[in-house]
Design a binder for these strands. Structure first.
Length: 917
DNA sequence: ATGTAAACTTAGAACTACGTTG
DNA sequence: CAACGTAGTTCTAAGTTTACAT
């Protein structure tokens, strides 16, 4: 259908080509008819993500003139500013071959030729199973389970939902306890309030006691899990009679009810009744502000920047900028990135201009116009030396300094929030430096300026003492917004982003927010059936916008994509999420395989081959219909606002991101459930099982990490160690034979053969290695002993002694020689026996097994980051329950900080292993 | 409706501490 | 008992979402 760009309905996005506003039945039918007759594979994830090299993209996008967003050659690319030296191939994530995927990419959405008839891509077969309706990212088995569970859950949920809704409607509304309303000036407009500037304007309207709400309708019974704990702690929040406006303001109401016996004792908010209005975050707030980074320390006279071989003098401000670059010469990743260099150099030249330029020794101006002629190595070395010296200092000194630092920071570490001591997260103002944007960030390398107090806004309780700004300075503003949780804020100069000082993860506010997040995800369980049914229907909507929305929801639900806000392409790296997917990010293969390949958040590559429901496939094909081409949006009639608005009609607060939480936690819950029956296993094994589940979730969420350069080497080392053990095992077998030659018959010749992955060549190599190792060990010991003697003022041992000590080395060599020649191994040890050797072999076997396990584990793990999902997506209560059920101490899963962060989960679920997500 | 400021969560890399093990 | 690797922390960039302004 010709050009569709001229339609009445406004487009969600205005770049590039648009799709028609509606889809006629005829169009749909035509697509169906033309479609391949191949039987679609069951929809579902085909766990085929990862591979494919990432080097250049062959198609260099063909920006279609008009577009205002510049479309780059999508993914690929990875500019490889790798470590200079060897710099391999530049593929960022290591080796991976580019999948052949010969791309019928473009052709496929065209005239709908039936292309590869019934041939299914291999990945589809992997998903096996023919159940066609419901499914889940983690394979069909899990999928079915999920479907079942949900069906029932959803049903009862529906009942609960409707009755609950009714009940709610009646009471809580009034509960809102206005109070607010009569306040006059918007003492606290919900948000917005330009940088606190307004603060002054604010009048002291009596912060109408919001307390009153706390005693409102305690209708909410704590969830049952809470009950027993509640009994013990029972805060009786309602007892808070008073609250005469001002009275409560700064007084701790503690005095009254506070069951917080131990003053400082932890506030068990999870046992407390829920507040229905949580927009007010605090009533009193005291803190000490922020710590500014130390002032710049000029370089010593003898350390200079060089230009064109000549040392140059700089104004101190320019010098500081020079050190930003100079101190990171080791970071080839940045230093070799032309964008980084260009941005830095521009900024550097600016500051030079502003500060009088660079001067040579005789004081005349040096025109700095080529970055390549700048030599920072002196600066670099200087900082290296300093850091080395620092590291080398005696422990005591280090400790002292640490203590000093701690003392300095102590006042900032905690704040007083509603009278309780709470930990502050990031009280340090970010130091100046070079902005390190990720991926192809257009601004990477630009100077991030020093933040001055004049840029910092303080948010603090009305009656609290305002922290002193550094001498001679003042704050940008001081405000008292109790609907905000931050203590201080400033705007960074590079991108104009806001930076906030907030509380630490283990604080009450953060904990409550976290709890809320997971509860919301759990609530989604109750609506998911309806949502899915709806979008499934809407996949066929005649309204393009609705059809796109439904399709996007499908992708978000099924494949855990992020929402995908629109980005400012010339000031940010080009990454996408669901709503911002572009033509080139999705490849379609008949009959129903979709290949996603794009850069997501943090420029992390998302590569996934999946099978989808036929209708989804058809829709995507439609959304890619010509004249759309590279650079055009797939969902041109959808944006995240529209999507979220629709979602929230299903459930208050439902947004795209909730699906990720839901999916991750739900999946984890299912996977852990499958672990029932492993109770007898050892603790390490159970941990491993848990981690395996964790890993699957991480893969689902596409949480990656770059594999360190050293990893390859280490894997090899590990492999060698395993082989070494296998070799020892073999030797032991041979020794058995030496003791009792008859065993050969008994056990079969095969038993005594060398492992398949080793040959004589390798053995010789290994023997050499063993010899060297022994030699090194002895020599080292000798030297050490000598050193010791020397320090004690005694005579050192002569070389002769070393020779003597090295005798075993020669013996070992001889032994090897002999063994190689005779093909036999003489039994070692005193009274050797076959039994003894069997025992050692068994031991060796065990070690080999663990090492192999570890090796596989590490390999599988190398580019998957488990932490992110554990910290942000998996409901911690799942882990707590698992730990309890399987008798594994929670420390095995949660580090100290995580235990603090998830204290609410640990406490509220406790030993109760019946809790379910 | 749409654009934008603001606020808060999520994210991987860099740095540091710490337990293991040769 | 140092050296090493990894696990845990810190840092701050990069998302999402909300609500206000227009």
């Amino acid at each position: 259908m010709s050009d569709s760009s001229d339609d009445d309905v406004p487009l969600a996005r205005t770049n590039g080509h648009a799709s028609a506003p509606t889809i006629s039945k005829a169009t749909d039918r035509a697509m169906d008819r033309a479609a391949s007759k191949a039987r679609p594979a069951p929809p579902g994830l085909s766990i085929r993500n990862g591979p494919v090299a990432y080097d250049s993209m062959e198609i260099d996008s063909t920006p279609n003139g008009t577009v205002k967003r510049k479309s780059r050659s999508s993914i690929g690319q990875s500019i490889n500013y790798k470590d200079g030296s060897d710099s391999d191939d530049g593929a960022p994530l290591a080796k991976r071959q580019k999948a052949s995927r010969k791309d019928e990419s473009d052709s496929d959405d065209q005239p709908i030729a039936r292309k590869n008839g019934g041939k299914l891509p291999p990945s589809i077969r992997e998903t096996g199973d023919t159940s066609d309706d419901d499914d889940e990212p983690l394979g069909t088995h899990l999928a079915k389970q999920k479907a079942d569970i949900e069906k029932t859950a959803a049903k009862e949920a529906k009942a609960i939902r409707s009755s609950a809704a009714k009940a709610k409607k009646a009471t809580p509304k009034k509960t809102a306890v206005k109070d607010e309303s009569d306040d006059e000036p918007p003492a606290k407009p919900k948000k917005r309030q330009s940088n606190g500037v307004s603060s002054s304007a604010k009048k002291t309207n009596g912060v109408k006691k919001e307390d009153s709400d706390s005693d409102a309708p305690i209708a909410k019974k704590g969830k049952k899990a809470t009950l027993k704990a509640a009994a013990k702690a029972t805060p009786t929040a309602k007892g808070k009679a008073t609250t005469t406006k001002k009275a409560a303001k700064f007084e701790k109401e503690e005095s009254k009810d506070s069951d917080d016996e131990g003053q400082e004792e932890e506030y068990r908010w999870w046992d407390a009744p829920k507040k229905e209005d949580d927009s007010v975050k605090w009533t009193t707030l005291e803190h000490n502000g922020v710590i500014f980074p130390p002032a710049y320390e000029p370089l010593p006279k003898n350390v200079k920047l060089y230009y064109d071989g000549q040392p140059v003098n700089l104004h101190i401000e320019a010098e500081e900028v020079a050190t930003f670059f100079g101190s990171m010469l080791h970071s080839t990743q940045n230093i070799e990135n032309p964008v980084f260099c260009k941005n830095f150099f521009n900024d550097f030249k600016d500051i030079l201009k502003k500060t009088g330029g660079a001067k040579n020794e005789s004081g005349s101006r040096v025109d700095v116009k080529d970055l390549k002629k700048l030599d920072f190595t002196k600066i670099f070395d200087y900082y290296q030396d300093i850091s080395n010296a620092k590291k080398a200092r005696p422990a005591a000194e280090k400790k002292a300094e640490k203590a000093e630092k701690d003392k300095l920071e102590a006042p900032y570490m905690f704040c007083k929030w509603d009278g309780r001591k709470e930990k502050v997260g990031n009280f340090r103002v970010e130091p100046p430096g070079l902005f390190r944007g990720r991926g192809e960030h257009p601004k990477t390398g630009t100077v991030k300026k020093r933040v001055m107090p004049e840029q910092v806004t303080i948010n603090i309780g009305k009656g609290a003492k305002v922290p002193e700004p550094p001498a001679g300075h003042k704050w940008k503003a001081v405000q008292h917004d109790n609907k905000a949780t931050w203590l201080a804020m400033w705007q960074e100069n590079v991108n104009g982003n806001y930076k906030y000082v907030m509380l630490a993860a283990n604080s009450t506010v953060k904990g409550q927010a976290d709890f809320k997040k997971f509860e919301k995800a759990r609530e989604l369980k109750k609506h998911i059936d309806r949502i899915r049914a709806d979008y499934t229907k809407e996949l066929k909507s005649e309204v393009m916008a609705d059809r796109q929305r439904a399709t996007a929801m499908y992708l978000i639900d099924r494949f855990a994509l992020r929402a995908g806000n629109e980005k400012d392409t010339d000031n940010e790296a080009e990454t996408v999420g669901c709503c911002s997917l572009k033509f080139e990010h999705v490849t379609l293969q008949e009959p129903n395989t979709v290949i996603f390949d794009f850069l997501g958040k943090d420029s992390i590559r998302f590569y996934n081959e999946v099978t989808v429901e036929r209708q989804v496939f058809k829709n995507l094909k439609m959304f890619k219909k010509p004249p759309k081409e590279d650079g055009d949006d797939i969902f041109d009639r959808l944006n995240t606002t529209q999507l979220n608005k629709h979602l929230s009609s299903y459930m208050p607060g439902l947004t795209a991101k909730v699906f990720r939480t839901y999916n991750a936690s739900f999946t984890m819950s299912q996977l852990l459930q499958e672990l029932e029956g492993n109770n007898e296993k050892s603790i390490p094994e159970k941990i491993k099982l848990y981690n395996d589940c964790n890993r699957k979730v991480a893969i689902l969420c596409n949480h990656k990490r770059t594999v360190g350069a050293g990893h390859e080497v280490q894997m090899e080392k590990l492999g060698d160690r395993i082989k070494g053990l296998k070799y020892q095992k073999w030797r032991n077998k041979m020794m058995m034979l030496d003791v009792d030659p008859k065993l050969k018959k008994k056990k079969g010749a095969e038993f005594f053969e060398l492992d398949a992955d080793m040959n004589e060549e390798w053995v010789k190599q290994h023997q050499k290695f063993l010899v060297e190792e022994l030699k090194a060990k002895i020599t080292k010991k000798f030297e050490k002993d000598n050193e010791k003697l020397q320090s004690e003022g005694q005579a050192t041992m002569p070389e002769k002694e070393l020779k003597e000590r090295l005798k075993p080395v020669a013996e070992l060599e001889a032994k090897h020689k002999k063994e190689n020649k005779t093909k036999k191994v003489e039994a070692e040890g005193k009274d050797p026996s076959a039994e003894k050797f069997t025992a050692t072999i068994k031991k060796l076997d065990d070690r080999i097994k663990t090492l192999e396990l570890q090796s596989a584990d590490r390999e599988g793990n190398k580019e998957v980051a488990l932490g992110t999902s554990k910290i942000n997506y998996i409901d911690p209560r799942l882990t707590v329950v698992f730990a309890a059920k399987f008798n594994v101490p929670i420390e095995k899963f949660f580090s100290k900080t995580l235990r603090d962060k998830f204290n609410w989960a640990i406490q509220s679920v406790g030993g109760d292993s019946t809790w379910e997500f």
